Amino acid sequence: MSFQPLFRRFHEAIQLKRFDENAELIEKRDRILKRLRDNLKGPGNVKVTFEPFNQGSYAMGTGIKPLNKDYDIDVGIELNLDYRSHDPVEVKGWVYKAIEGHTKAIQWRRPCITVYYQQEGEPVYHVDLAIMAKDPYTGGLRLAIGKENSAQSQREWQNDDRKGFMTAVENRFSTSEDAAQFRRVIRYLKRWKDKHFSSEGHAAPTGLSLTVAAYEWFQPMADATAAGKEYNDLIATMALVQKIHQRFGQAWDSSLSRDVPRLSLLFPKAPHDDVFARMTNQQMIEFHKRLGILGGWLEEGRKTRSISPLRQAFGEDFPEQ
């Protein structure tokens, strides 16, 4: 029995198409962009222009349907201004003021401004606006970092090459079939994460951190057949999970008076920060343990040819037969 048809059906069940293929997401984004174009002004009531670009999982083709129904849309706002002449929090304030009142809930966060769309009091979409400006020397982008009342030391125009990362993901594999399996496996790990971790705080690894891990360590896997080869998503997922699990090092935790497992992985483009840095040691212990459990479920499915452990790993969207 080959599990590959079941994995393909599972992928169909959880997959979100790319941003430009989803009319409803485009409509939500465009309403916000129109609001910004009409209202975004700087000092002296001077109009500020910008160029938007899609980013995140929708742009990279790694998005999944969220279990909590809260769709997360990422949009970069590249402002046409010299960032060196303006405080990043001041600039984020222009954006906040331009869209204030567009929905009932707009949150000022350290890396972005988030616009929530709600239905019957529950969030159904939220759009993260990353406020950026081009560096006139390097041509790269700078991301406005800081909350509304952040101290000066907590404000910065951070080097940010998420565009470069999106291009790197797009070009990670030379064949479309290898690239498609790469994206499928990222989606499987994201669904496992959503199924087995709390969505509150930083208890779970982020979708971005799992994508970076796959970018670094994923290898395509296929079985030879009479027709040529058949991709094997079970083995490819097992291999990546094992690789991530093996990459954990040890970090001293003074509160526990012992070493704990900890994973560190630098974003391959600017700002080259650790994509797992915000997880506490206790959260890392849980992440390490659950990766081990996931590996066990995948191995049990492979050995016994049973679907049950795969449904334990990925939930009810994984087909029963």
Rank of each mutant, 00 (worst) to 15 (best):
P261I: 00
R9S: 14
P5N: 08
G56A: 14
T138Q: 10
K104W: 07
A226F: 09
L33M: 09
G63E: 08
D38I: 02
G42Q: 09
D194Q: 15
F314L: 12
K190R: 14
L141E: 08
K289T: 02
I106N: 11
E78A: 13
V46T: 15
D223W: 12
G296Y: 01
F3T: 02
R191S: 11
A213E: 07
H126F: 02
I32C: 12
Q246C: 03
K243D: 10
Y137K: 15
Q321V: 11
D161R: 11
L291W: 00
R110F: 03
R183T: 09
A270F: 02
F10I: 13
V169W: 05
D20V: 06
M279L: 07
P319N: 04
R31H: 10
E148N: 01
T237W: 07
P123M: 04
S209E: 08
A222S: 15
A133K: 07
M284Y: 00
A239L: 09
A144K: 01
P309Y: 04
A239W: 06
R18F: 05
N159Q: 11
L6W: 00
F267N: 02
D259G: 02
G146H: 00
N80P: 06
G139D: 05
R84E: 08
M284F: 00
N68S: 12
P220G: 13
M238K: 13
N39T: 08
L291S: 00
L263P: 01
T167F: 14
A251S: 07
L310D: 11
E100A: 10
G140L: 11
I14H: 06
T114G: 05
G295Q: 09
R37F: 00
E51K: 15
L256T: 07
I73W: 05
D273V: 07
L141Q: 08
V91L: 14
S264Y: 00
S264P: 03
L143F: 05
D20N: 14
S176G: 03
E216P: 08
D128S: 03
P205L: 06
V91Q: 11
F197P: 10
D74L: 03
M60G: 10
L33Q: 08
E216V: 04
V169H: 11
E300F: 00
V185Q: 13
I26C: 08
I293L: 12
P123Y: 01
N159S: 10
K41Q: 14
